[in-house]
């Protein structure tokens, strides 16, 4: 029996397949492993950050800080590598610790001071961006043999495509995210929180640890996205990744999550990210279209999804016996 709660996910997948088929009819090359491989690599940092955002949105919250955290992490890593002799892996560990603690702190404020996530993470957004600017206002290049090693290791697909390290990392994050969301007590608590905080409390859901955990995960994954971005661009720049949080929110919503919380899919977010990447790829293939078309199509898609969700909600609000 088909469950209605998977309808948004199915709709997203259907749109992705149809869109890909349309692109393929015009540019058959778009289905080559080369393009597919690049799709993963180019969107790795967005995808990783969007997994964290999915948890936040399912819980009924929002995290506006992730773009700034990505930039901060990038600058932090670049500055550490330029000024110290620490190994990049150690620096990565430091960066992840900082970003996860930063997220946990925001979660703590949201829970204990009963502040709206919008305001708390907005403050976090300014704070992280400001910290990045304090470290450096200039773009810092990263030159390290470990970076070259990572960038040059990939899995070659038949047909010449490459699954790069960061592309693979994104896929791993998605798999872990799916298991965490749908197969653990923590995941169940995240959904419960999105269904209603007061009711969750009466049912015995640990509110504090869940809320803090959610924002810590979002912070951690934003840090991981920052590392990915740093590996992708070989540089750290404090004004990078502006507005990535909004792209991530868009990917989550296109992926079938409800912005009001309580319902969503990590796998849907992956498709959401891929849809956004596909539009960009199409524009590059076309060559004459301005890159603004990406935004326009995403805007239209978001509208379509919001209206569709309203329809699902109305259908669901008429319970059957």
């Amino acid at each position: 029996m088909m469950q209605s709660r998977y309808l948004p996910l199915i709709a997203t997948a259907l749109i992705f397949v149809i869109a890909y088929a349309l692109c393929y009819l015009q540019y058959p090359n778009i289905l080559s492993t080369r393009v597919v491989g690049n799709l993963f690599t180019d969107n790795a940092f967005l995808g990783i950050a969007a997994v964290g955002m999915t948890f936040v949105i399912i819980s009924g919250g929002i995290d506006l800080s992730i773009g700034s955290v990505i930039a901060f992490t990038g600058v932090f890593i670049a500055a550490m590598l330029a000024n110290t002799s620490l190994h990049p892996l150690l620096v990565f560990g430091l960066a992840l610790t900082i970003s996860a603690s930063f997220g946990a702190m925001m979660g703590g404020i949201i829970h204990y001071l009963q502040m709206p996530p919008f305001v708390v993470t907005l403050a976090g957004m300014f704070l992280a961006r400001g910290m990045a600017l304090v470290i450096s206002t200039e773009s810092i290049p990263v030159k390290h043999e470990f970076y070259t090693f990572i960038q040059e290791s990939f899995y070659r697909l038949p047909g010449g495509g490459r699954i790069t390290t960061i592309g693979a990392l994104m896929l791993i994050v998605f798999i872990v995210g799916i298991l965490l969301a749908h197969r653990t007590k923590f995941g169940a608590n995240v959904f419960a929180l999105g269904g209603g905080i007061q009711t969750s409390k009466l049912m015995g859901v640990p509110l504090a640890s869940t809320t803090i955990g959610i924002y810590a995960i979002s912070g951690f994954l934003a840090g991981l996205a920052g590392i990915t971005f740093s590996l992708y661009t070989s540089a750290g720049y404090s004004l990078a990744a502006v507005g990535v949080e909004l792209d991530a929110i868009a990917a989550v919503v296109i992926g079938g999550a409800l912005l009001t919380g309580g319902s969503g899919f990590i796998a849907g977010t992956l498709i959401g990210v891929l849809i956004m990447g596909l539009i960009q790829t199409y524009i590059i293939f076309d060559g004459t279209l301005s890159s603004w078309w990406t935004k326009i199509v995403i805007g239209i898609l978001l509208f379509v999804f919001i209206i569709m969700q309203k329809g699902f909600l109305l259908a669901a609000s008429a319970p059957k016996k």
């Binding site: 007590k185 169940a188 608590n189 959904f191 419960a192 999105g194 009711t199 049912m203 309580g262 319902s263």
Partner: peptide
Amino acid sequence: LGNLSVAENMMI
């Protein structure tokens, strides 16, 4: 919670 399954509600 209406957004969880019956089983999840009973066993959370």
